[in-house]
Write a protein that binds this DNA or RNA. Structure first.
Lengths: 324, 324
DNA sequence: CTGAAAGCGCTAACAG
DNA sequence: CTGTTAGCGCTTTCAG
């Protein structure tokens, strides 16, 4: 941890950067390297950051790092960033605009080189602010159609449509859709993708994010009490899917016999359900990788403006198979 | 983002620190604060860190941030750290000593004020090194009995014992134990807590961490092929529990009729299983909170040496109820 | 090729 | 009360 050496000034720069310019004789090079090892020299990244105006740090803002979707993405981002020498500092927004704003300020003060953010509702201002001050950032998962900026997301509309089509092809007639009551565009695209295929036949339950269990129960109870009860439910989110399955269990409704189910995102819970749950699988690895790469490109060329849209895969299993 | 003001030098220090010493007249105070707002002054945390020799950053090293146990802990740590003005930089060790070493070096270079680490196997050297250089750190979840240092963990021995006792009380006679083949002390304590109650009656399966599905299947198959087949299985980890349940499902073994199950740690999957799974519940919030608090205390007083051991709770549900 | 010096933005110390 | 200065550890620049 100590430094102090007879060669202070350019030693560090040399040892670390192998600079061509200002070449140093081979013997002194060796001597310096040896000295660095002997003294267990450890560069002070902070000092370097201050002078370079670059911290090699990415600020990651997710909804909640404890949510599997967020943490899986975080893991990929960690790995991908690390390959390029970047570290990741993270924060959870809890879907709150105010927390998002605080985290952005904080990370900005900490001089992160760029952001990867899953923006909550009503944070257009924050996105605009980042654009305005010209700091590199990429929106992941969520995005604002009215703000053109770097963005990595899935094709939400067709992802939902594929789930509904699958249910229709498997003989389901009356399909319930469970989604959040939200202004989040990506979720509304999922809703639209589903409804466009169903028209008036669609039953829609809109769940308040802070009353998930309660509202999901109410929505499904409503679906089942319809004159023509639903024979399938599509959930637009993993949390909603889990909540929905719990409620169906508590009602002793048989999946898929009475109600078929298609969920969104992957979780172990889907495998363990007595009828393994069909779901829309997001390309997590690609999402994370593309986000980091796009950010790094933007750090290099701040004028960049690119949108990456990835396709999903429908994993069909027992929870939605054809009725016999 | 720009600074530049007529009051450069002590403005910043004052505005930010509200220092008592070197008091400033009220009017100039107001003027300075106004100027800070007008210029949208944002302190440069990096510069401050360099001079203060303090980054207000905690390095968190977990096994894998994508694992729910890690990410739940990370979330608590984030919140708790934030209350004290700290940010969290994280890395996943993948249970590899080499990755752990790299991350420690990296975070050290980045001048973190302290570490919270879930040490993998064979990283005693790393822990010793941290002790030796005198940087504050606390071990979480995992620890080395031979290294006295700050540590927050659960009482693994009695946690496992409580699970076994519960199974015995519910009429189970032959209990299988599924755990990792590992040098990790906390897992071996769980094993010991279980075996001490069972003696020769225990059937033990030791799973290689990189062959979980395969080895779990083999272990359980073995349990069931015993002259006296097991009527219960205790899993020492959430990943093992999930793998075990999947395999039992594939065998069409009925839980709890044929085999009772107690798992470790919580996950949504346990709720959705047709027989909600009993499990040893770790006090996640307390674990995270204590870890941060202990670290902060150690940052204040580096001579501190404290071990916090927390108790677990057995959540008994249908997967292990009394046979009728 | 190698020393010396400046400066990144901040805070602490020391004079006015 | 307020202005000036030095220095955190690094890299870049400018002289030798």
């Amino acid at each position: 941890m100590q430094r102090r050496s007879e060669y202070r000034p350019r030693l560090v720069s040399y040892v670390l950067n192998n600079k061509k310019e200002g070449r140093i004789s081979k013997e002194i090079t060796a001597k310096i390297k040896q000295a660095a090892i002997d003294l267990n020299y450890q560069p002070n990244h902070i000092a370097r950051s201050l002078q370079a105006q670059k911290t090699m740090t990415i600020g990651l803002i997710v909804a909640d790092i404890a949510n599997p979707f967020s943490s899986q993405i975080a893991r990929i981002i960690e790995d991908e960033a690390q390959k390029a020498g970047y570290s990741v500092i993270f924060g959870s927004s809890d879907e709150k605009a105010s927390k998002t704003e605080k985290l952005i300020k904080l990370f900005l003060n900490r001089q992160v080189d760029g952001f990867i953010i899953a923006f909550p509702e009503n944070t257009q201002t924050q996105a605009q602010y980042l654009k305005q001050i010209g700091i590199p950032f990429v929106m992941i998962d969520r995005y604002f159609p009215e703000i053109t900026s770097n963005c990595v997301s899935i094709n939400n509309y067709s992802a939902a449509a594929s789930a509904i089509n699958h249910l229709l092809e498997n003989g389901r007639r009356k399909i319930g859709i469970v989604t959040y009551a939200t202004a989040l565009h990506h979720l509304n695209e999922r809703k639209r993708g589903a409804i466009d295929l169903l028209g008036d036949d669609a039953a829609v339950g809109e769940i308040r994010i802070d009353h998930v269990a309660e509202d999901v129960a109410e929505a499904i109870a409503g679906f089942l009490a319809l004159p023509e009860p639903v024979d399938a439910v599509f959930f637009s989110t993993n949390l909603l899917t889990v909540a929905g399955l719990k409620y169906l269990n508590s009602l002793n409704v048989k999946v898929p016999d009475q109600v078929a189910v298609v969920g969104f995102d992957e979780t172990d819970a889907f495998d363990l359900f007595y009828a393994p749950v069909s779901y829309v699988k997001q390309p997590m690895t690609d999402l994370g990788r593309e986000a980091v790469n796009l950010l790094l490109e933007t750090i290099d060329d701040s004028s960049l403006q690119k949108s990456v849209t990835l396709d999903t895969e429908l994993v069909a299993r027992q929870s939605s198979v054809l009725l016999r």
